[in-house]
Design a protein around this nucleic acid. Structure first.
Length: 796
DNA sequence: TCACAGTGACTTTTT
DNA sequence: GTCACTGTGA
């Protein structure tokens, strides 16, 4: 580089530098795995502030995870401290931020609380009492998906995407009920701001004037609703820059729309595209393998990663008999890594489904291997934690029906279903909030429940008072607390309004600026009581402490100490309605109790789903379960199959130094043992790019790569069983004539599921054909006709 | 109101 | 195989 660059730019490669300094048109940065994309985006924020004199508060940067938002903020700040004033948030946290500031216009109380997926399903069940919990779960997730696609209950094309009967009505009824409870769900955090911007030109104009620059990270994961919001946020003058990698789009099933990134340049005319293809993480040997698989996808923007670390050992595929051997094999990798002076935390074991972690969890302690599981059961999903959070939600929002139902009788105070119904009916009739309604119909309650309810109400009112919430029962919250927040006319989205831009940030010059909802770093003022103390009192007075203590003793659980953890988390927030709202929002939007978990820092092997590895890297990566039927599943085709290839690409590109793959011939799924064949993805890799071994890591006698002899294996359903590899093929069972009875398109009848049609037939070495059936109910299931008598072929 | 057993489901899951 | 939900019986 022959120009004098400030030090923070000096280390960038030419493409990165170009991306940082680009101006004047929409910018799409296609950033391959490990190409330094976070560095580019954070440097760009700093550069805009430093070199272009951009005021930080006119910069909006959105990400998808809180972790990414935190990292982005920290890194931008470390280059340029003024970046702390930029709005760097997740999409959802930005939505919540925006809605609280425009609550009145959005028809919300600014103290609204956010329902998670589980709460949504429970609410839906209240709307549809005749449906089972499971149906409600499914419907709730369909509604969430509809919101991802930006569809409203009155959208004309709702049925096209959601043809299930009554869906429109269900969606509308759910939305109606949600509005009554004064809550929003995740989808609303995107949907409602977009609606507001579309319908209120004044708000749109003010917002567009404020945010001159919008940056989006992980753009390939955005959904239609988020895309719409982005377009509404961007005015004609807005500089828009998105960063992403179409090859790493792995959340289609949750509504992510790869086309957002594929079509970006068409939608935003004049777009400049910059590709970051230099990979600083992995050896070339690893990237070659990753690139080979993903190159089988169609509709890519196309990138070729070049390793800045050439060479590297060939990835190794272990062909194993069963899961026990797989654990054994991983153990041997761990042990030999340790023997070479490596650390446990260098190693990650990846799998497709959470259930696969079980085998490792069972055996690792015996093997003396410490492990940590990333993302399994989450702290805030725990029963005892949700209980306390529900108390808090109800205290803040007495209309919160789900919270009320959850805690009114927990611990038991004699309020049964009948009692609950009485109160809910009364509230529905009078339109009062639940506490008021409960107070009003207390004499209708019978027996123990009467005193129980009185007690309960007194307690809740006591806590409301402690928080400074109005005790006028008709109030939705304290008017004083809202005074500054939901006034649409308040000019807090005006770009000139720098210092009080965000009341949650300290004015410049004050020590330690804090943030809500995305950092969890907010401190309660020293000397004042913190929210933590209120929580402590609540846990004691409600009887939850006693209740869970008992549970702990019986079941040996850690519930009480989990509650202590929660108290700790709350003690960072000030006592008061706003502190509480912030606390709840942070929790709702960031379920990962960050770093407070001591195991986080512990020296241990990481067990993790492939999905959860995005953004992470490890010196040693073992991708387990490379079997057809598991990864990919047999019913995955087209777009779904391409997404699985991308998932493989993500998994593999986590590895810095060594990559191992495993496939088991026998796999237990849902308690049943299946014979499998190796994943078709393995046949999509040029054979010379990896070595295959048998059990125990010993080189096997068959050729350098058993897949070499089988071009086309796994590509089609009718491909012959694997040849030439004794360990995995054992070809015997599949006779071609079996396929004539079980062929795609054939009609079948199943004892339990009824009539259906075969959509796919895959031969297996010795289990006969595996048929995938789509039933008239819509259900998709797979069977080995050899092992079941419930599936019959129907003659046409 | 609670405890227990039977039933059925069951990829992934940033927010 | 495991878990969570459902319904029954005391």
């Amino acid at each position: 580089m022959n120009e004098d660059l400030p030090s923070y730019l000096a280390g960038l490669n030419p493409e990165q530098l170009q991306a940082v300094r680009h101006e004047g048109s929409p910018l799409l940065i296609l950033a391959g795995a490990g190409s330094g994309k976070t560095r580019v985006i954070t440097t760009k924020i700093a550069w805009l502030v430093r070199e272009r004199g951009m005021s930080p508060e006119s910069i909006l940067a959105v990400t998808f995870t809180n972790k990414a938002a935190r990292e982005m903020r920290e890194r931008a700040e470390s280059i340029e401290p003024a970046c702390s004033r930029a709005v760097i948030r997740t999409f959802h946290s930005f939505g919540a931020w925006f809605l609280r500031r425009n609550a009145l216009a959005a028809g919300l109380d600014s103290n609204f609380t956010i329902y998670d997926d589980d709460d949504s399903a429970v609410l839906l069940q209240a709307v549809l009492p005749s449906r089972t919990r499971q149906e409600c779960n499914r419907l709730a997730s369909r509604i969430a998906r509809a919101k991802d696609f930006g569809l409203e209950p009155d959208s004309p094309d709702l049925e096209r995407a959601f043809p299930e009967p009554e869906f429109r009505r269900t969606y509308a009824a759910y939305q109606d009920r949600l509005k009554k409870t004064g809550n929003v769900d995740f989808g609303d955090l995107i949907r409602l701001p977009a609606r507001l911007l579309a319908s209120e030109p004044a708000i749109a104009k003010r917002t567009q004037q404020r945010f001159r620059v919008i940056l989006v990270d992980e753009y390939q994961d955005s959904n239609v609703a988020q895309f719409r919001l982005l377009r509404l946020l961007a005015g004609p003058e807005t500089y828009i820059c998105v960063v992403g990698d179409d090859d790493q789009s792995i959340y289609r099933f949750r509504g992510a729309e790869v086309r957002n990134i594929l079509n970006f340049a068409q939608v935003f005319p004049g777009t400049i595209t910059i590709k970051l293809e230099r990979n600083y993480r992995s050896y070339q040997s690893i990237l070659d393998l990753a690139g080979d698989v993903v190159s089988h996808n169609s509709g890519r923007l196309g990138k070729t990663l070049r390793a800045m670390r050439p060479g590297g050992e060939k990835p190794l595929l272990a062909l194993l008999d069963d899961q026990e051997q797989e654990v054994q094999y991983c153990t041997s990798i761990v042990k030999s890594h340790l023997a070479k002076g490596g650390n446990l935390s260098d190693i990650a074991i990846l799998y497709r489904t959470n259930a696969q972690s079980l085998a490792f969890e069972k055996d690792f302690p015996r093997m003396g291997i410490r492990y940590r599981i990333v993302g399994a059961l989450r702290f805030y999903d725990r029963e005892e934690v949700k209980d306390v959070l529900s108390y808090l939600s109800l205290i803040l929002n007495p209309r919160d029906e789900i919270a009320f139902k959850r805690v009114a009788n927990k611990p038991a105070r004699g309020i049964g279903d009948t009692g609950l119904e009485t109160v809910l009916d009364a509230a529905a009739r009078s339109g009062e909030d639940l506490l008021t309604a409960a107070g009003g119909c207390i004499d209708e309650l019978r027996g123990r429940g009467k005193a129980g309810m009185k007690n309960f109400l007194a307690m809740i009112h006591g806590f409301r008072k402690a928080l400074g919430l109005s005790d006028r029962m008709d109030a939705q919250g304290d008017p004083d607390a809202r005074e500054n927040r939901d006034d649409t006319n308040r000019d807090d989205t005006n770009r000139g309004d720098t210092n009080r831009d965000d009341e949650n940030r300290a004015a410049p010059g004050e020590p330690e600026p804090y943030s809500i909802s995305d950092g969890g770093t907010r401190r309660a003022d020293p000397g004042t009581t913190s929210l933590g103390e209120l929580l402590q009192a609540l846990i004691r007075e409600t009887g939850l402490a006693e209740y869970h203590k008992g549970q702990d003793e019986i079941a040996g659980t850690q519930k009480l100490s989990n509650l202590e953890e929660l108290v700790n988390a709350a003690s960072l927030y000030p006592l008061g309605a706003e502190g509480l709202a912030e606390f709840l929002e942070t929790i709702e939007l960031d379920r990962s109790l960050q770093a407070a978990d001591p195991s986080e820092s512990a020296e241990a092997v990481t067990l993790i789903t492939m999905h959860n590895t995005k953004g992470l890297e490890f010196p040693v990566v073992i991708v387990t379960g490379m079997e057809q039927g598991l990864f990919p599943r047999d019913d995955e085709e087209g777009e779904d199959l391409e997404e699985q290839r991308r998932l493989f690409y993500v998994a593999v590109t986590r590895a810095k130094n060594r990559l191992f793959l495993t496939a088991c011939r026998w796999r237990r799924i849902h308690g049943r043992l299946f014979e499998t064949v190796p994943s078709r993805f393995l046949s999509e890799i040029k054979p010379e790019l990896f070595d295959a071994r048998g059990a125990g890591g010993k080189a096997t006698s068959f050729g350098p790569n058993p897949y070499a002899a089988r071009p086309g294996y796994g590509r089609a359903s009718y491909s012959p069983p694997p040849q030439g590899n004794a360990r995995i093929s054992q070809q015997s069972g599949t006779r071609p004539d079996m396929n004539s009875q079980w062929r795609a398109g054939a009609t079948v009848y199943h004892d339990e599921y009824g009539p259906g049609m075969i959509v796919k037939v895959s031969p297996t070495p010795s289990s006969g054909p595996l048929v995938v059936v789509r039933f008239e109910s819509g259900k998709l299931a797979q069977f080995f006709p050899k092992f079941t008598s419930k599936l019959e072929r129907v003659k046409e």
